[in-house]
Design a protein around this nucleic acid. Structure first.
Lengths: 342, 342
DNA sequence: CCATTCTAGTCAATCGTTTGACTACTTAAG
DNA sequence: CTTAAGTAGTCAAACGATTGACTAGAATGG
């Protein structure tokens, strides 16, 4: 490359990097620029990263590429990363393939890591910390203090539950997420707070801890339906679990929302396509991806040490899976009063 | 690192790379291995890639992280890549962020590229070829001959259409994919072949070229519904377009499958959750991801020059969106005979 | 006992960029 | 006319791992 322009490689480097410490004649610059175009030259990233100790690559760990929640986060992250001149490398951690994120950092393939997976054990995180690796949690918290970017899950949960209360429900079940996760506990707390603010008692039997999957939502809902006095509405902490809940309700011969209303979290693109179209709380996932990258880069640049961003903007999207509570006996189902009757 | 074990870096390198050309005393080897464990040492990937001219990284270009079709392909690719000691770097190409795959290759960040995006223009592909970059097409074809890994879309389409024919349909519409794409034309050909084999004439007005999106499926179906004698069944070349078709049918006040049957392609995880549960053709997407990585690596190793893999195994998944054609007037709809009446 | 072979390494160049230090030439200042 | 400052570069040492060439000492063969 440098040969074609008849200059020292250092000159090429300074031109490419806009190094103002050194003056370059316009004529020379032009010659180099032409050679670059001629050869489609791009500086070797490996040599560059080696020398500069910087790869301009960010990593992101997610649990599953099929989960649209993470798809939305990735979209935001990819956009922001490319805006700031970084590349994004996403990998999933699950039973099949476990991307070795730690190696990626240790080998210097990435400058920093975003951990957006709840399946990422706390032990792995403390290992990251022990080795002083730059990382940030996304849509996830740990017991110990770490840098994070999250949404306002408590507020989002309150939106959902208040919607049910506004419709007249007082017997509101909750299919929570795993309560050892930040999102799970926050949504649960939002649920409890919303009930309390409306003077509705919290019944522990109306709470079922499930995973963020269709199957666990199905099972959790089944348990709720087996109660002597099942809820008339359910707040599921996730879209997938809310879909599972609807399946369970249908299997029991009941109808959504006539017999039981269901509201879920995360307004994924197929929420409007399922039957009935899901009422959901739309969380700012795309924005979380953007903010995660912004924050991580700030951290890498030393502009900011402690990152704790909470993104506002949860929004209720009302569709067809919620309505007023039933008031009369329906198809062999039980009598409803519209009031909690315990 | 080498210091801790009191050896030359070259010894460390030879131990890590199992270089049998040089003998190492067991004692020395042990000391080095211990130092490696002690420091959690991993050789710097940038230095390594620079010297070896190999990054052990593969790139994959997809149109969208939210499209579950690609999610499934990525899953397979990620699994196979990690099995073979490679890392996978996925990026999406769309209007917002355009990952510069060419730069990734030119900068030597990745060893090879898998192009799994139909939104990747042919011109970009010929640029890849002109610069002699190692790449392979996945679930996609071009007019010129390039290496590819695809599924048997013609066969898959025949499965779908034969299913409709078996149910008694003779007026079968087709919402094709873009007919400049390989998958689009193959599925269209499968449609035509299935009709022909059953002695059913092909009516050009029953064909609508759509994109692989909900919106375009909706619009295409609307056109079909405006025909004087609309089809009683529709084969959509994609899940998303089949969902759009169902929405259009519902909007027109008709019912799926009672008035019109719909079958789509790609058995994504939410196919069973929409209303009605979708009958689809399951294509071997996961396997395509696996095979794409296998083939690309073979190509990189020079073990194989021309790659043209067609993966068998399309499978019909019958759910609730298909049934026998209507035989009588329904809700102001038109008369049906069960026979094509043109 | 000398030459050869084997053992177990060390040395140094290399990959392609970056960057601080240096140089040669020109122009301006005193 | 001498010195200082400005201009436009070149040079060489990194970055960290790899790898072919070389070496010192031990063992073996004749």
């Amino acid at each position: 490359m440098a040969k074609l322009a008849r200059v020292d490689p250092s000159v090429v480097s300074r031109i490419i990097n806009d190094d103002t410490a050194l003056l370059i004649k316009d004529e020379t610059r032009k010659r180099v620029l032409e050679a670059i175009k001629e050869l489609n030259y791009r500086p070797n990233a490996n040599a560059r990263s080696l020398r500069k100790r910087k790869t301009m690559m960010l990593g992101m760990v997610i649990p599953d590429f099929l989960n649209p929640v993470y798809g939305e986060i990735i979209r935001g992250a990819e956009l922001q990363a490319s805006t700031e001149g970084y590349h994004l490398m996403v990998c999933s951690i699950n039973k099949d393939s476990k991307c070795n994120y730690l190696s990626l950092l240790r080998e210097g393939r990435i400058d920093g890591l975003m951990v957006a997976s709840s399946e990422f054990e706390d032990s792995s995180i403390s290992e990251l910390e022990k080795e002083n690796m730059p990382f940030i949690l996304v849509n996830r918290l740990t017991l110990s203090m770490h840098d994070y970017v999250i949404a306002d899950d408590t507020y989002g949960a309150k939106l959902a539950v208040n919607h049910l209360i506004d419709l007249g429900h007082t017997q509101i079940g909750h299919l929570s997420g795993p309560l050892f996760t930040g999102t799970g506990t926050e949504r649960f707390q939002g649920y409890r707070a919303a009930l309390k603010e409306s003077g509705i008692d919290f019944f522990p039997s109306y709470l079922h801890e499930t995973g963020y999957t269709v199957e666990s939502g199905y099972e959790g809902m089944m348990k709720l339906l087996e109660l002597p006095d099942p809820p008339t509405a359910v707040f599921a902490a996730n879209v997938l679990s809310s879909i599972g809940a609807i399946q369970a309700i249908k299997v029991k011969g009941l109808t959504v929302p006539d017999d039981i209303s269901v509201v879920g979290v995360h307004d994924v693109f197929f929420a409007s396509m399922i039957d009935p179209a899901l009422t959901t709380v739309k969380m700012p996932l795309f924005e979380m991806g953007i903010e995660a990258v912004k924050s991580l880069i700030k951290k890498l640049n030393g502009e900011q040490t402690g990152v704790s961003v909470r993104i506002p903007g949860a929004e209720l999207i009302v569709r067809k899976s919620t309505s007023v509570p039933p008031t009369k006996s329906i198809g062999g189902y039980y009598e409803r009063t519209g009031k909690a009757s315990k």
